[in-house]
Computed example of a mutant assay.
Amino acid sequence: MTDLPAAPPAVQRLIDLIGEEKILAFIEHFAGQRIYVPRSISEQAEITTIVGAEAALALATEYGGGYLTVPVAREWRVLVYKSQNLSYRYIAKRAGTSEGNVWRILDKNDATQSQLDLFST
């Protein structure tokens, strides 16, 4: 997975920590939750089953013994899924929102991009 849309700072911090390939699964599973990150990660730990041992260890190193509130990052996820050419219906399902909201997010992003393009020439 490369060339992801620009991520919000909280998401980018997690991308830097566990990598692009793990971030969507992590956010999809834990979005909006305040999770406890143990200091030592076992093979059976929920985090390990979602992101794998290496990423779970990175999370434990950074947050071990504390709590992490996982961002929902719905708009960013919609943009990522759109860049993967997923259907709007599937995007809505994965982002936990309605198809109408997917359309609104994408329309808003298109308008913003059009304004940026206008001023960049």
Rank of each mutant, 00 (worst) to 15 (best):
M1C: 11
T2L: 13
T2P: 03
D3T: 06
D3G: 15
L4R: 11
L4T: 03
P5Y: 07
A6E: 12
A6P: 14
A6K: 15
A6L: 05
P8K: 07
P9W: 11
P9D: 14
V11T: 15
V11G: 05
Q12K: 15
R13N: 12
R13E: 15
R13P: 09
I15D: 09
D16Y: 14
L17Y: 05
L17N: 12
G19P: 04
G19Y: 00
G19F: 00
E20Q: 13
E21M: 06
K22Q: 14
K22I: 04
K22H: 15
I23K: 01
I23D: 01
L24P: 05
L24K: 00
A25C: 10
A25W: 00
A25S: 14
F26V: 01
I27M: 09
E28C: 07
H29D: 13
H29G: 04
F30K: 01
A31K: 11
Q33M: 14
I35H: 02
I35R: 00
I35G: 05
Y36H: 12
V37T: 05
V37H: 02
R39S: 12
R39D: 09
R39C: 11
S40H: 03
S40I: 03
I41F: 07
S42H: 11
E43Y: 09
E43D: 02
E43G: 10
E43A: 07
Q44V: 10
Q44L: 11
I47W: 01
T48I: 09
T49C: 13
G52T: 05
A53W: 04
E54I: 08
A56R: 00
L57G: 00
A58L: 09
A58M: 07
L59Y: 04
L59M: 15
A60C: 06
T61S: 05
T61P: 00
E62H: 08
E62T: 10
E62K: 10
Y63T: 01
Y63L: 04
G65W: 05
G66S: 14
G66F: 09
L68E: 12
L68F: 10
T69N: 00
V70M: 04
V70H: 11
V72T: 11
W76V: 03
V78Y: 01
L79C: 08
L79M: 08
V80M: 02
Y81D: 02
Y81P: 06
S83L: 03
S83V: 04
Q84E: 12
Q84V: 01
N85Q: 11
L86A: 02
Y88L: 02
R89F: 04
R89Y: 13
R89D: 03
Y90I: 13
I91E: 01
K93I: 08
K93W: 02
R94I: 01
A95R: 03
G96T: 15
G96L: 12
G96C: 06
T97A: 13
E99P: 12
V102S: 13
V102T: 02
W103G: 03
R104L: 15
I105F: 12
I105T: 14
I105L: 08
D107W: 08
N109E: 12
N109P: 02
D110R: 11
A111G: 02
T112Q: 10
T112I: 05
Q113G: 06
S114V: 09
Q115P: 04
Q115E: 14
L116F: 14
L118P: 07
F119V: 10
F119K: 14
F119W: 14
T121M: 09
T121W: 11
